[in-house]
Simulated assay, not measured.
Amino acid sequence: MDAHKDRFGVEPICTVLQVAPSTYYAAKTRPPSARSVTDAATTEVIKAVHEDNYGVYGPRKVHAEMVRRGHRVARCTVERLMAATGLRGLSRAKGPRTTVPGTGPDTRPDLVQRKFRATGPDQLWVADITYCRTFAGWVYAAFVVDVFSRRVVGWQLSTSLL
């Protein structure tokens, strides 16, 4: 509204926006709320803690560091303010590397020419491998599926890809 009030006036803009002009004037003269003042101060501390730790701390560690420095603030407030300012921590967890590219050309022939159709059972089987994170670590599952019936013909679970 401030950008256009010189050209159109406050009252016509408020009429179009269906806002009372007194609401606009009250918002302009009202002092900032206590929450916005504390949020601004807390955001500066969060930015300092985040930068001091090379930008790798997430909300949990930023909150713990703030408490150690004597700033009492709720963890949910740290989460909210970090999200609002776009600060994020870095995750060390990476998915497993399941595909290792070969050094030479792929000389294996495509025997089905990418047409995964079969007219009867046991004519074409396809295989796939996937992985799932568990409390004990990564678990790998390999499946062999009959293309005609779409049923699992065989499967194997392992904690390694070997």
Rank of each mutant, 00 (worst) to 15 (best):
A34Y: 01
Q18P: 01
Y54A: 08
Q113G: 08
V62H: 00
M66C: 03
D52G: 06
R80P: 03
T29C: 10
Q113C: 06
T103Y: 14
G58D: 00
L111T: 11
R150Q: 13
E44D: 11
L157F: 15
V56P: 04
P121Q: 05
A64M: 06
E11A: 15
T98C: 10
A93L: 13
A84Y: 02
K94H: 13
A127H: 05
G104Y: 10
L90P: 00
R68F: 03
F8K: 08
K115I: 11
K28W: 05
P121G: 06
H4P: 02
D39W: 04
G137T: 04
V67E: 02
A3R: 13
D39K: 02
R7Q: 07
R92A: 07
D6I: 07
T23W: 06
R75L: 01
D122A: 14
G120M: 09
G102I: 14
V152C: 14
A26T: 08
P109N: 04
A20I: 11
T23L: 11
R7C: 03
R114W: 07
S36E: 10
M66L: 15
Q156H: 15
M1L: 07
L81S: 06
W138T: 11
V67W: 06
D128E: 08
V45D: 00
R114H: 13
P96Q: 05
R7T: 13
I129K: 06
T134I: 06
D2N: 15
R151W: 08
R92C: 09
L157K: 10
R75C: 02
T23D: 04
A40W: 09
P109K: 04
K28N: 08
A64C: 06
K94F: 13
G104V: 12
L17W: 03
L87G: 00
V67Q: 03
